[in-house]
Simulated scan of single mutants.
Amino acid sequence: MLIVLRHGQSTANAAGLFTGVLDAPLSDQGIREAHTATVLLNLALPGERPPTTGTGSPAMTTAPAPAPAAAPVTLFTSTLTRARQTAAIVAAGLARPPVGCDADWRLNERNYGALTGRSKDDVRAEFGEEQFVAWRRSVAEAPPAMGDLLYDEFAGTALFRALPAAALNRTEALSDVITRVDAFLTERVDPLLACGETVLVVAHGNSLRALCAVIDGLSDGQIRDLNLPTGQPLVYRFNARGRPVPFGGRYLDSVTALAAALTLANEGGT
């Protein structure tokens, strides 16, 4: 089982900014979303649901039935603060703590180049709706590259000084993110799934769009239309041929998640 979780709302999300590699923390709402996601995960992970009586309430007077064997859970997160905060809240709240928790820069959010930190409303007003949507939603088109001043500002942070040079480009198309996420899946996730483990990936709207694109084999049009809301766990199970069942996975709280995804789409997307 593979579970993907977009971090809770960040302060930059709340402010309507192009966030990308901007290292914004969770907002208060984002912290609440991370805790809610943890509750959903505890209900979904094998062996974690409390035994119940025939009425559906927790058993109080009878000995609990043996829990099904629970696969080990390994947690991966990006190196950005909002994802690491979400992962820490989840790891601390899981009834069965992860056997491993590791950060991998290849899960970092897409670099929005010169748009980083700018208001989305301002960018839309300056460049027009068509260009705004192309920069946000297309697979192949990258935003304008960072200039030297902005690039050097990010390169000089403790975060990026500790990462490989490849972790910070001047801009990225979603196709670039798909390439690095695909390599991460092949190297780190596929071997664990093959051993029957459960993998939980906490990352970002675009790096998880890239992950879903690889797993589901999405077309460019399907990738463009995919929106992943914050704080909503999406579960993938796989058949004997390694294909996801069902296609596109299943949200643990489908009603809330799909409503939030529709709101995202109306705002211009993830």
Rank of each mutant, 00 (worst) to 15 (best):
T86P: 05
K120M: 13
A142L: 01
D152E: 11
S175T: 09
G113M: 01
E126P: 04
D152C: 00
D220A: 14
Q232W: 06
R96H: 10
A166E: 13
T81E: 15
L75V: 09
Y236N: 07
F247R: 15
P191A: 08
V199R: 12
Y251C: 09
E129M: 06
R241V: 05
A259S: 06
R250Q: 07
A261W: 00
A183V: 11
G196S: 12
H204P: 11
G56D: 07
R136T: 04
S207W: 07
A65D: 12
G56S: 07
A95H: 15
A63C: 07
R237G: 14
T86W: 01
A59L: 13
A265P: 05
A165T: 01
W105L: 11
F76A: 07
P72D: 06
Y112K: 07
N108P: 09
P244L: 10
F18D: 04
G217I: 03
D104Q: 06
L80M: 11
F160Y: 09
Q232N: 14
G249Q: 04
A257Q: 02
L40A: 14
T55N: 13
P144D: 00
Q232P: 06
V139Y: 04
R250D: 02
V39R: 15
Q85T: 05
T53S: 15
W135L: 07
I223F: 00
D190K: 14
V189N: 12
T55M: 13
H35W: 08
E48A: 12
V90I: 09
V73W: 03
T198Q: 15
G269Y: 00
L185P: 07
A167F: 00
N111S: 15
R82V: 02
C195T: 14
N206F: 12
A69T: 14
R136N: 08
V133I: 14
N239Y: 10
A260H: 02
G231C: 05
A140S: 11
A114P: 08
T116F: 06
E109V: 09
P164A: 01
A71Q: 10
A257H: 01
L5I: 03
A24F: 02
D152K: 03
G16P: 05
A70R: 13
A162T: 00
N227M: 04
G16K: 06
T116C: 10
A88T: 06
